[in-house]
Design a protein around this nucleic acid. Structure first.
Lengths: 188, 188
DNA sequence: CTTAATATTAGTATCAGGTACTAATTTCAG
DNA sequence: CTGAAATTAGTACCTGATACTAATATTAAG
């Protein structure tokens, strides 16, 4: 007869899932939920290498805090690895689960777009640049785990308008191309 | 002679700013930084109504945790207010400071793009849709505070390919148009 | 049934980063 | 010089833990 109380293994699997889903749960709540003592929960966490509540909260906070910074402060998606102002630039982006559709593992289009747009803006030597017009094509879907390399070239400049072409590759295959017209904004 | 140590008022202003910028700082670090005792820091926080470190971390975590959910779970940017599957859809988006360049108050292009893309996907009656090709134009910059109305129309369907036009307006002025080709993905 | 191994529970000391409170000391302005 | 404001000190207590020891319960095997 299987005991009412679940086996250690089952409990640990469920515990992992539960904490994954609800990172803000305390050991005490877990102990209630699984009907075991708090010490058992702690032994489980120890065995499974799951950090304590406060550490989990901190992780969530820091992860998203830095994400906010990387999107809002630096305003560039991906890592800038080469830059010749007003000429060209290269950035790379390791695609993570964050950027993909959960079911298909296909990277969402707007992240690819953001990568291209932010690189285009980075190569322009102006305090603030604004996407005026973008004409773009996605060619093949990008899958989770693929490393994206974006190359931007300034092809023309007229007054405060810059024409920038951005191509994104996975290895040698082009997965995206876009033409950006960026307008630099004065200090007024 | 102005004293080396800043006045209470100055300290409290700087303290507020510092915690605003670095929410992960402890009272002890603050006490070092300002050259006052830890008790003074605590009195300051009490007077200013600034919660303790752990509460601050929790807030950051919860705020961003829910943001992540709203972006990853619902997977639609803006609020869907009308939907005729495989025909048309309308969504609205109130532009907030989050979406804008801090200096110019111009809404970043990729948010507008995301709004259009996600609406285009929403109107397709398929489990998962993927942006295959998008051809788009930004027409006028969108400013912080303007309400965006996106209208999507399915103009054609061939097999698993859907052709969707999305136009985004501020009041009666069109600010964006895009043609999306979406490909529905099977269950395999 | 007994025994050994495994799993669980109990209990204690300790920690970080605080709150809440009381009291002493320092600073400064009038 | 004096009194109010500001600062510092110190204590007890809180939560959600870790780290560790020890006792008890459960289970599986012989």
């Amino acid at each position: 007869m299987p005991s009412k109380r679940k086996s250690k293994k089952t409990r640990q699997v469920e515990l992992t899932e539960k904490i994954e889903k609800e990172p803000f749960v305390t050991d005490e709540e877990l102990s209630d939920h699984f009907g075991v003592s708090i010490q058992t929960i702690r032994l489980d966490r120890l065995e499974l290498g799951i950090p304590e509540l406060r550490e989990r909260i901190k992780k969530v906070a820091q992860k998203n805090y830095s994400k906010v910074i990387s999107l809002r402060e630096t305003e560039i998606v991906g890592e800038l690895i080469d830059l010749n102002l007003n000429e060209s630039g290269i950035s790379i982006l390791e695609t993570t689960i964050d950027l993909a559709f959960k079911k298909t593992k296909v990277i969402k289009g707007h992240h690819i777009f953001s990568m291209a747009e932010s690189l285009a803006m980075a190569v322009i030597n102006a305090k603030v640049a604004l996407t005026g017009v973008a004409n773009m094509k996605y060619r093949v879907p990008v899958l989770l785990g693929q490393k994206l390399v974006a190359k931007a070239e300034v092809v023309n400049q007229r007054g405060n308008k810059y024409f920038v072409h951005v191509k994104i590759y996975v290895k040698t295959e082009q997965v995206f191309r876009g033409k950006f017209i960026l307008v630099s904004i004065g200090e007024e």
